[in-house]
Every structure is written in structure tokens, then in C-alpha cells.
Design a protein around this nucleic acid. Structure first.
Length: 94
DNA sequence: CCCCTGATTGTTCCT
DNA sequence: AGGAACAATCAGGGG
């Protein structure tokens, strides 16, 4: 129960932003969504974000580890991207 | 020593 | 321009 998944987590305690704030890396879902947005919507022409957004999440988890592997793999690659800025951010800020 | 929480990322859709 | 569901992700600070 560490993180209540209410969607849009933004309780109250706001952390202090950093000077260079290395924003963070994308998530496997981001890469997956990149490929699904055109696919899902292509199969459901005319459906609004409410339908696509929700359905995307269900499909995302329904995927197999190997299916999401490429997305997760990209997540790891993007993480490295963020890692470099993070390291620089720490180097410059320190 | 150990834990948590917040912040962030990107998509789509609409007003 | 931003918000909201959908999911993952990480880092740092505090007791």
C-alpha cells in the first residue's frame, strides 16, 4: 500500500524540484503505447480516448512478458538516456 | 539499516 | 494548453 493507484497521484507533499531536474526516463507503457495508439485506434476507428486509453491498459498487461519485452527493452534503453542526464545533473549541481 | 513517496514519461480525445 | 485514465519507473531523503 505504498502507492495508492488512484491514477494521477498527486497527494499533497510536494518534493522540491532540482535545478537541472533530469526529468526521468519513459516507461515501457510509453513505448508500447507508441505502437498501440496507431494499432488500437486503427482497429477501433472512431473510439475516443476514454475507450482506447482504458483498452490499451488491459491489452498491455494481457501481453506476454516476451510481447512487452521489446517495450520494456526500450524502457531500459531510454532509462540509460535519462541516466546520462541524471549523472550530468548530479555532476553540475554537486 | 530500511522504507516510502513523489515526481515524471507518453498516448489519445476534447473544450 | 491542459487535463484525465493507463502503466511503468526511478531517485532521493528521512526515522
Amino acid at each position: 500500500m505504498a502507492a495508492p493507484r488512484e491514477t494521477k497521484r498527486k497527494a499533497g507533499t510536494r518534493k522540491k524540484k532540482d535545478p537541472n531536474a533530469p526529468k526521468r526516463a519513459l516507461s515501457a507503457y510509453m513505448f508500447f503505447a507508441n505502437e498501440n495508439r496507431d494499432i488500437v485506434r486503427a482497429e477501433n476507428p472512431g473510439i475516443s480516448f476514454g475507450q482506447v486509453g482504458k483498452m490499451l491498459g488491459e491489452k498491455w498487461k494481457q501481453l506476454s512478458e516476451d510481447e512487452k519485452a521489446p517495450y520494456d527493452a526500450k524502457a531500459g534503453a531510454d532509462k540509460k538516456r535519462y541516466e546520462s542526464e541524471k549523472q550530468l545533473y548530479l555532476a553540475t549541481k554537486a
